[in-house]
């Protein structure tokens, strides 16, 4: 196996203190190989963005260690990290985040001024990226005149301009229609496959799973084994509210069947007289 582009060992991050403390990421370890396309999925508030921020050298973990290539970025300070980000990481955001005052070419070249050689040296690559991502005709256009798909392609070109080994994408298809989203996904897939760049992508888009090498499921800040079907529902036999069939918090057994209830109140009512409720429920 190739040496990993990114390696995170037992990283954790909490916000707040005392009673209000929230453990956003809890003891996560992962390694990403060159050319690998890794998805991070999970419910809202599960810590995906916090994890992505730490992997992107934007946030320090409270504990654990992150290694980008041969550099341990954990001990680096705010003066050292910007250079690491500029040279080694490309970012793609759900809201595109283009600089409004700059045209397509200037947006793509913006990160190039932060590395050796500068924008002048990166111009041929910018032209190549624009041609590849079908932006050549729009190189002088301002972001406000672009479609969503075009904006995201500009953001992808910007992420690639410094040829980083790692690309972090946060819901890159989230603000796009299905056709544009599909197109963006295929571009990212090609980048991973053809250029050997590693991509870590946070997404809710189930279509992406088809092209991903690996899917990680993050829930309550921890990487967990993904349930076979996260959308398997039943109805609470007492109040008929929808209940996740995989959750056993308020389950009760009656005549050999396990019934899932929505709350402790419904469970108490159910246990008082199970036969009054079982006829209309789906177990």
């Amino acid at each position: 196996m190739d040496k990993p582009v990114l390696k995170a060992d037992h990283i954790s991050k909490s916000f707040g203190q005392g009673h209000t403390a929230v453990r956003a990421v809890d003891d996560v370890s992962l390694a990403v190989s060159p050319g690998e396309l890794v998805l991070i999925m999970g419910p809202s508030g599960s810590g995906k963005t916090t994890l992505l921020s730490m992997l992107g050298a934007l946030l320090h973990p409270d504990t654990g260690r992150i290694q980008l290539g041969d550099v341990d970025i954990t001990p680096l300070n705010e003066r050292q990290l910007p250079r690491i980000r500029a040279e080694r990481i490309g970012f793609i955001f759900q809201a595109f985040n283009l600089l409004d005052a700059l045209n397509v070419e200037e947006n793509i070249l913006f990160p190039a001024q932060l590395v050796a050689g500068g924008a002048a040296a990166a111009r041929p690559r910018a032209l190549e990226l624009m041609a590849r991502l079908r932006l050549a005709e729009r190189r002088h256009a301002l972001p406000r005149t672009l479609s969503g798909g075009e904006k995201q392609r500009v953001a992808i070109a910007r992420a690639l301009i410094n040829q980083p080994a790692l690309i972090l994408a946060d819901e890159p298809t989230g603000n796009l229609d299905s056709q544009s989203g599909q197109e963006v996904m295929m571009v990212l897939y090609d980048i991973a496959r053809d250029e050997g760049r590693s991509i870590i992508m946070v997404t809710h888009d189930p279509r992406v799973e088809e092209v991903a090498d690996r899917v990680l499921w993050l829930e309550d800040g921890r990487l967990q084994k993904r349930r076979a079907s996260p959308h398997d529902w039943t109805a609470c036999p007492v109040c008929h509210m929808r209940v996740d069939i995989n959750r056993m918090d308020f389950a009760a057994e009656h005549r050999g069947h396990v019934y899932r209830l929505c709350s402790s109140r419904c469970r108490e009512r159910f246990l008082d007289d199970p036969d009054a409720f079982v006829s209309g429920s789906i177990s």
Binding site: P82, E87, N97, L99
Partner: peptide, 14 residues
């Protein structure tokens, strides 16, 4: 602010 956050994220030093 959003653009400032972006350029800092991209690696522009303070």
């Amino acid at each position: 602010r959003r653009e400032l956050a972006l350029i800092k994220a991209l690696g522009v030093p303070n």
